[in-house]
Amino acid sequence: MFNNILICEGYAISGYEWDSSKVDPLKYYNANSYFLIDSAAYDWNYCLWGYPSLSSVSITNEDVWVEPDDFGETGWSGIFIAWETEGYNYLYCYIFINTYEIMYYSNDEIKSVIAHEFGHCWGLAHVYTNNLMNPSDFDRFSNYVYSPKDDDVDGVGSIY
């Protein structure tokens, strides 16, 4: 139905990615100066800096808009919308965190949701294993997955 997803053992690639001029560094905008957004971005950057070929790749600010807002009982806690794309390259992305659904989440759990959506920004798709890109909050939280795992970072490493 959409772009073909490449599924490997522990990660899946959506087929969309950033142009090399954008990803070094990738910039995000923290709309409400929400500290957990910075914290999730830091977690990704920390993992990427430790990955040999990704040492200069990081999320900083402006190319990805990240904002908490109340969308009601939609069933999702975070949403990733790749609004501007050119072919299979991202030009601009939005991440929204549904404050209604995360009302009773701990800080670690909220950070997990934001970090998961950042994973989509890198070009990762969902997996159903014990990794950050598992789309089920329940699965991630019950396995204490609040930040990128090795498979998630390997996935980004396979793209850039």
Partner: peptide, 20 residues
């Protein structure tokens, strides 16, 4: 039923589901 949708103008959204 679900493959007759015109792909050419579609974009995708990904979400994190609250409940399983």
């Amino acid at each position: 039923v679900y493959e007759n949708i015109d792909d050419t103008k579609n974009r995708y959204i990904d979400v994190s589901w609250v409940k399983k």
